[in-house]
Amino acid sequence: GKMTGIVKWFNADKGFGFITPDDGSKDVFVHFSAIQNDGYKSLDEGQKVSFTIESGAKGPAAGNVTSL
Rank of each mutant, 00 (worst) to 15 (best):
G1A: 09
K2D: 08
K2A: 15
K2H: 13
K2G: 11
M3L: 13
M3Y: 13
M3C: 06
M3S: 09
M3Q: 12
M3D: 04
T4G: 05
T4S: 10
T4A: 06
T4L: 11
T4M: 10
G5R: 00
G5M: 00
G5P: 00
G5I: 01
G5Y: 00
I6D: 03
I6P: 01
I6G: 03
I6L: 09
V7F: 02
V7M: 03
V7E: 00
V7N: 00
V7Q: 00
V7L: 03
V7S: 01
V7D: 00
V7G: 01
K8N: 06
K8S: 07
K8T: 06
K8L: 07
K8W: 03
K8M: 04
W9P: 00
W9T: 03
W9C: 05
W9I: 04
F10K: 01
F10G: 01
N11H: 09
N11V: 05
N11W: 10
N11E: 05
N11K: 10
N11G: 04
A12C: 07
A12K: 15
A12E: 11
A12S: 14
A12D: 10
D13T: 15
D13W: 15
K14E: 06
K14P: 02
K14S: 08
K14N: 05
K14W: 11
K14G: 06
G15N: 03
G15K: 05
G15T: 02
G15F: 03
F16H: 06
F16S: 02
F16R: 02
F16N: 02
G17M: 01
G17K: 00
G17D: 00
F18Q: 03
F18V: 05
F18K: 04
F18L: 04
I19V: 04
I19C: 01
I19D: 00
I19L: 08
I19H: 00
T20S: 12
T20I: 15
T20G: 05
T20H: 10
T20A: 13
P21A: 04
P21N: 04
D22N: 11
D22T: 10
D22R: 04
D22F: 09
D22E: 08
D22V: 08
D23M: 06
D23F: 07
D23Q: 07
D23L: 07
D23N: 13
D23C: 06
G24C: 06
G24H: 09
G24R: 08
G24W: 07
G24I: 04
G24D: 06
S25Q: 10
S25E: 08
S25D: 09
S25P: 05
S25T: 14
S25R: 09
S25M: 09
K26F: 10
K26W: 08
K26Q: 13
K26R: 12
K26A: 14
D27P: 08
D27R: 05
D27F: 03
D27V: 05
D27L: 07
D27H: 04
V28Y: 05
V28A: 03
F29C: 02
F29A: 03
F29D: 01
F29R: 03
F29Q: 02
F29P: 03
V30T: 03
V30S: 01
V30N: 00
V30E: 00
V30H: 00
V30K: 00
V30Q: 00
H31G: 04
H31N: 03
H31V: 03
H31T: 04
H31F: 11
H31C: 04
H31S: 05
F32N: 07
F32E: 09
F32Y: 14
F32K: 13
F32M: 13
S33Y: 05
S33C: 05
S33G: 08
S33V: 04
S33T: 12
A34I: 04
A34L: 03
A34D: 09
A34R: 06
A34G: 07
I35E: 02
I35F: 07
I35G: 02
Q36G: 10
Q36W: 08
Q36I: 15
N37K: 14
N37S: 14
N37W: 10
N37C: 07
N37Y: 12
N37F: 12
D38L: 10
D38H: 11
D38F: 09
D38T: 11
D38W: 07
G39L: 11
G39P: 10
G39T: 10
G39R: 08
Y40T: 12
Y40H: 14
Y40L: 12
Y40P: 13
Y40S: 15
Y40F: 11
K41L: 10
K41E: 06
S42I: 13
S42Y: 15
S42P: 07
S42C: 09
S42E: 08
S42F: 14
S42K: 15
L43M: 05
L43S: 01
L43P: 02
L43G: 01
D44T: 15
D44R: 12
D44K: 15
D44F: 14
E45D: 11
E45P: 15
E45I: 14
E45R: 15
E45Q: 14
G46C: 05
G46F: 06
G46T: 03
G46Y: 06
G46W: 05
Q47I: 09
Q47W: 08
Q47G: 07
K48E: 08
K48Y: 12
K48W: 09
V49G: 00
V49L: 03
V49C: 04
V49I: 05
V49F: 01
V49T: 02
S50F: 08
S50L: 10
S50Y: 09
S50R: 04
F51D: 00
F51V: 01
F51L: 03
F51R: 00
F51C: 02
T52H: 09
T52E: 13
T52N: 10
I53D: 02
I53M: 11
I53P: 05
E54C: 05
E54K: 05
E54S: 09
E54M: 09
E54W: 08
S55I: 14
S55Q: 14
S55A: 15
S55W: 11
G56V: 07
G56R: 10
G56F: 09
A57K: 14
A57V: 13
A57W: 13
A57Y: 12
K58E: 09
K58T: 12
K58I: 09
K58L: 14
K58R: 15
K58V: 09
G59D: 04
G59V: 04
G59S: 08
P60E: 10
P60W: 06
P60V: 13
A61C: 06
A61E: 15
A61K: 14
A62C: 04
A62N: 01
A62G: 03
A62I: 02
G63L: 12
G63C: 06
G63S: 14
G63T: 15
G63A: 15
G63F: 11
G63K: 10
G63E: 11
G63Q: 14
N64L: 10
N64R: 03
N64V: 07
N64T: 08
N64K: 05
N64Q: 12
N64S: 11
N64M: 11
N64Y: 10
V65M: 02
V65P: 01
V65R: 01
V65H: 01
V65F: 01
V65C: 03
T66L: 09
T66F: 05
T66D: 08
T66S: 11
T66H: 11
S67Y: 12
S67N: 13
S67Q: 14
L68Q: 10
L68D: 10
L68V: 13
L68S: 09
L68A: 10
L68Y: 06
